[in-house]
Structure formats: structure tokens, C-alpha cells
Design a binder for these strands. Structure first.
Lengths: 123, 123
DNA sequence: TGAACATATGAACAAATGATCATATGTAAT
DNA sequence: ATTACATATGATCATTTGTTCATATGTTCA
């Protein structure tokens, strides 16, 4: 993602003007792509996926997650902050504990489809 | 994702045994999580999303993409290699050109749901 | 108020990542 | 074969990322 003048990016002659025009027309807004990439980036980490997976089964506090996933409290907390930033989980305080839960069902859907993709592609 | 003995990961007493047990039971296989994370990681980059988006509109060769997205040929090629590795795009040679296309429709679905998520969460 | 517990956060550091540059591979036409 | 074009790939480097350690914030109870 650099911002340079549009020229000699490629030494070739544009072989297929139609498709290129289509591609340009279909170009999504930059802000939208950045948001999407950010969301996927958040999903693109095993530790965070484990947390999401665990929260898919039950609402859990930081300590629970730490124990269940065998991660340090600090690591869990840091990752929960990231997940919270992406609106993937929501927090609720109850006394000294902070309970986390999936914020909506989109996560399940996305993970479900991604899993299907993996199943079909690999084995 | 560290591999350490399961002990004193957290100084707290396990407040909620039931949920923790559920979480443990629901724990997905590590290999599966790694694959999933890898897939999302690939989707978690604006340049690659732009490429996928463009390919969603039409089959394009490297040069087309380079021009349409104003990226260097090298950058496009590198990212296409990553996308190919994740089985998200497929390549077809025609003469000197290599044509790329989305490998299946899961990408569209995933991006669609993610977009919905963004729409509902942000504005 | 003070002690103990639960969570959050900042600094630091190793590892991973994405772009660029230079160059190699592959294809077609002369 | 040689030249030109299209794409792939290796090396390098600045940036980002995830974990750990240390410490701060917040809550409950004595």
C-alpha cells in the first residue's frame, strides 16, 4: 500500500483493457478495505482464534481463559483488548472479574465458512 | 502459542469450573486452528484484499493487476504467490501471461459476512 | 484504610511481514 | 540462438506483531 504516481508500474502493454476496466470499476473504497483487512488480521492469530473458540462455548472471565488455554494472564488480556477493539467480543464486569463473550454471531459464520474452505481444499 | 507446563498461568482460583470445562471440551485441534489463522492472516492485508476484489470482477493477468491496482509487478507477484498458497486463487498460463482467478466462492462469502459485521458495528 | 485478588497496560525484544531491488525463469517471435 | 516480454523469486530492510516482565488500575472484604 504505497501511494505513488500511476506510471510505469509494469513494463507490459495492457493486454486486457476490458477486464482491467471492470476491476477498476469494482474497486472498493480504501477505508473499507483497510477495515476489512484489519478485521481479518485480528482473526489471523492462533491465540485469538483459540480465545474466540473458547468464548463460543461459554462466557468466560480472563482468569478462566488463562487457565483453559494455558496462556499467561497478560497475554490473554492483551489479546482480549485487540478482540474488543475489533468488536468481536464484549466485556461485562462482575465484581473483580471481567466476563467476555462473543459480540455477535458473525464470527461463528466466518469461521464456519473458512473451515469449509479448508476442508474442501486440503483434506 | 507457547508450549509450557500447565501451571500457575494465573494466580486466581478457577472461579467457573463449568464454563472452563465447556471451553476445554470445545477446544479445536491445534492444526485446524493454525490453518484457520493462516487463512485469515492471508486475508488480513489490504493489498491482497484489493487483488481478491479485482479478481472477483474479472480474470486478470499479473500485468493487468499491476496496472489496475497501481502496484509493482514484483509486489503483485509476491502476493499472488501467497494467495495461491492459501488456495484462494488459481493460475492459468496463456502464452506469456499468467491469468489469475478466484479459486472458489468462499472468499466472496467470507468477505460478505465480514463486511456485514463492519456495517453493523461501525457505521 | 489496607490487604488481596483480578485485570489492564506500558516497555522491551525476538520473530514475522510486506515492499523494493536485482535477477532468474519461462515463453514467443524473429 | 537471440532478443524481448511476462512472471517468479531471492535478498534486504523497515515496520509490525505477540509475548513477557513489571507495574498500574480497579474491586472486594476485613
Amino acid at each position: 500500500m504505497k501511494d505513488e504516481p500511476e506510471q510505469d508500474r509494469c513494463s507490459c502493454s495492457i493486454v486486457h483493457e476490458g477486464p482491467v476496466a471492470s476491476a477498476r470499476a469494482a474497486e472498493a473504497p480504501v477505508s473499507r478495505l483497510l477495515d476489512l483487512a484489519e478485521l481479518f488480521k485480528v482473526l489471523g492469530d492462533p491465540s485469538r482464534l483459540r480465545i474466540l473458540n473458547a468464548l463460543g462455548a461459554a462466557e468466560l472471565c480472563v482468569c478462566d481463559l488463562s487457565v483453559a488455554l494455558d496462556m499467561s494472564q497478560s497475554a490473554v488480556s492483551h489479546q482480549l483488548a485487540v478482540l474488543r477493539g475489533a468488536r468481536l467480543v464484549r466485556a461485562r464486569r462482575d465484581g473483580k472479574s471481567m466476563f467476555y463473550a462473543l459480540d455477535d454471531d458473525h464470527v461463528r459464520e466466518i469461521v464456519g465458512i473458512a473451515t469449509t474452505h479448508l476442508d474442501e481444499r486440503k483434506g
